[in-house]
Write a protein that binds this DNA or RNA. Structure first.
Lengths: 236, 236
DNA sequence: TACACCCAGTGTCCATCGGACACTCAAGTA
DNA sequence: TACTTGAGTGTCCGATGGACACTGGGTGTA
């Protein structure tokens, strides 16, 4: 950029500083941190090797000394962003409050890093912390009488709901979440989509959470029906 | 590519064919069809302007005469792939069988085009057929006593479940769906993830559907709890 | 019949992407 | 002092989406 100016300074000016500031050593953690900053600020689409490298004042190829590919960079970002999985054993009240706590913590994390839904779709590597979050939720269902497959399916269902509501929050994943756009469409075509038109209009002015609370309660109610039905009959 | 050979042929060989086969006129539908073929065969990542153009034996820039951007191409693909929304009014038995039918039809469509989850994430344009599918499901909840917001949230919850199970079917969206990989990890770290290890091992050899049936039944049960509780009390 | 216009399809260019590979150069060791 | 090592660099490549000027054949009008 300013190579000529620098040359002039080097020749004529007072030698004020070492030509290149003594920079911190590059580490995987620093790289992940920079990538997360880019993603938080400008979205996953802006996370490229050159963008991340630029933020560290380094060449993109330097990054490859520490991560073997972009996929690995993303994997490291995710592990760093999700944080340590929670310990739910101290939450009183059985499986339901524990799952609510888990879902709430997870949702908070995902809200802090809105690119997580986009980063965690598709084939990819999985890190220990991510698995730890799953462990945590599966363990919370330990005394419900559900079998192993059911416990895993239940956690998948719940975490999928978080993914859906959060990715819908940042981008219109589903037609009916792009509020404004959909409302305009429906105003122009109300005769074609009467039920949807009526439902949408009745929610005008309402605070929307993309169905987070609604879906959470439906899922937990559905689980409760199964768990209570499974329990050895006592009274009835 | 073979321009010199063609030149030779034109000069010396018998003039066998018009240099370029009389090709079908390019239309948006033909373009969308070709793009869907590419996506079905090689996944969404292989859908590029040049790939689609090549399949039509045409330059990529020719496509821009018919679609204004790649985003528009994708939007057209989606509209074409989802097909006409179903009419559920003939399905007997109330909202539950109707939603099951709807979910089953939608899941079938998404299975036919495994790229649909990937294509319908992120900010994008929405077409009338896609909105039609939503209309169809919202209408099925018309006589449940749910209010407009609840009906939309319910449909979002259900369609989100389809998205999750289907996108997990084609790629390991969640750690616990990449069966083989996860099982290996857990074998090596069973002391770190005991609950998950136990749950996973107990499902060995089981046919997995990514929790489709399980999640569907939980969601419907959860909806039923709400709907029945909302109904004006009769007996009890 | 002649000519001008229109427009679908072409060719070329550009910035950006992930990544391969050979390099420089300073620090540490023999 | 000479050699090795390894972090960071520079350059190249093919593929991506897209801008823009061009061409050539068909059609409507004079």
């Amino acid at each position: 950029m300013a190579s000529e100016d620098q040359g002039t300074d080097l020749l004529w000016g007072p030698r004020q500083k070492p030509a290149r500031a003594p920079r911190l050593a590059l580490t995987v953690d620093r790289i992940a941190g920079a990538a997360i900053e880019v993603a938080d600020a400008e979205g996953m689409a802006s996370v490229s090797m050159q963008q991340v490298a630029a933020r560290l004042d380094v060449t993109k190829m330097a990054l490859y000394r520490h991560v073997s590919s972009k996929a690995e960079l993303v994997a490291v970002m995710i592990e760093s962003a999700v944080g340590e999985p929670p310990n739910l054993r101290t939450v009183p009240g059985g499986w339901r409050p524990r799952l609510i706590t888990w879902a709430d913590l997870m949702r908070r994390t995902w809200r802090r890093h809105p690119w997580l839904p986009a980063a965690t779709t598709g084939e990819r590597m999985t890190g220990p912390r991510e698995v730890g979050w799953t462990e945590s939720a599966v363990a919370a269902l330990g005394d419900t009488g559900l079998d192993g497959g059911e416990r895993m399916d239940a956690v998948f269902l719940l975490s999928g709901h978080i993914r859906n509501t959060e990715s819908a929050a940042t981008a219109g994943t589903q037609p009916w979440t792009a509020e404004k756009q959909l409302r305009d469409i429906l105003r122009d075509h109300r005769e074609r989509f009467p039920a949807l038109h009526e439902a949408t209009m009745s929610t005008a002015g309402t605070v929307r959470d993309n169905g987070w609370e609604f879906g959470l309660n439906r899922i937990l109610d559905g689980l409760e029906v199964l768990i209570e039905g499974r329990r050895p009959e006592r009274t009835s």
